[in-house]
Design a protein around this nucleic acid. Structure first.
Lengths: 186, 186
DNA sequence: GTCTATAGCTAGATAGAC
DNA sequence: GTCTATCTAGCTATAGAC
């Protein structure tokens, strides 16, 4: 077999930057291929199902990052809760490039992305909320309030990324991450 | 002159529903024309500048609703602050169909909509923040905190609309509107 | 002012050479 | 596994009849 020019992981990482900025319809296969370092036709070798399978692959890779670096750290880490929260928030900062890059879930939350991936994204968001809920519980917060805080955290992250884009300023995101930190530890 | 089939206001209102759900690239002129009750070619009579001018017209109409029913009520109304807030939040609920419909600003906050309309949307969001800030001041809240509350309100509305779409459930939006109400009056 | 018809282009997707 | 070449369908936009 001829060697791959780029690994599937590299490909997903590069195409993610296009997808999170332009959404499903806004990202053409030409742009995605160019960003990934391949020609358009080559994408059909990697993703025989076409655009939908390609985006699903990027979405799975994105969720996988969250699961490994955020959800599992929060919910299954063996360090103290405070340390786990610090680590998870650091990874969140990295994922969103300190607020400069969109959340892929949001970018896909317009039609037709929502129609194709809505259920999957909803599940992933529930994972997020579950993981932060467990962290809250570990910090001695009551169940109901822990869930409420987890939900509000996700909501504020999403809102901050909208405003960061609109104002072309990462400050809303930075502030929200700091708020989440102090909400759990205050 | 031959009579218009639909007024510019009706046209903007109907096309808004497509644009806020699908974004700039996701909304084709065919869909927009169909939603508005015209044929595609007729749109070029109303909007000689093509798609960009059409979307700008819808955006202007959308902002005009906010200015008249929300911003002016909050900042220039002669009723008591509590009553003005109640009225403005009611209009916000209506605009977003109780959380079932996206914010157009958010739908246009991906490329290429962001590139075309980002500055205009940023100005409109600043108007939002300004208006809620003035309401806060009228309720006796200090300047800095009033601005902070206004910013956070907008952020949470945007975040709630993201989650409302993802979960296909208007509850996040409803809760956030109630929270804003009680934040100002608690 | 609205329509049908169509131009010119780019999209997603496929065939087949290497 | 990647590429060039190409297909069809849809896109934005225009021309011109009514």
């Amino acid at each position: 077999m001829r060697p791959q020019k780029v690994t599937e992981h590299q490909l997903a990482e590069r195409m993610l930057e296009v997808l999170r900025a332009k959404g499903y319809d806004g990202s053409s296969l030409n742009e995605l291929a160019l960003a990934g370092g391949l020609k358009k036709a080559s994408l059909y070798h990697r993703f025989p199902g076409g655009k939908q399978e390609l985006v699903k692959s990027v979405l799975d890779s994105y969720t996988s990052y969250l699961e490994q670096n955020v959800f599992e750290v929060l919910a299954k880490g063996k360090a103290k809760p405070k340390k786990r929260l610090k680590k998870a928030l650091g990874k969140i900062r990295t994922l969103y490039h300190e607020g400069a890059s969109n959340c892929l879930y949001r970018a896909l939350s317009l039609d037709p992305g929502l129609e194709l991936f809505g259920e999957q994204i909803a599940m992933n968001c529930k994972q997020w909320i579950k993981a932060f809920s467990i962290l809250g519980r570990d910090l001695g917060i009551k169940k109901k309030r822990a869930k409420r805080m987890a939900f509000e955290g996700l909501l504020k992250i999403q809102g901050s990324l909208v405003l960061a884009k609109v104002f072309n300023d990462t400050q809303p995101f930075q502030e929200v991450v700091d708020e989440i930190w102090s909400d759990y530890l205050g």
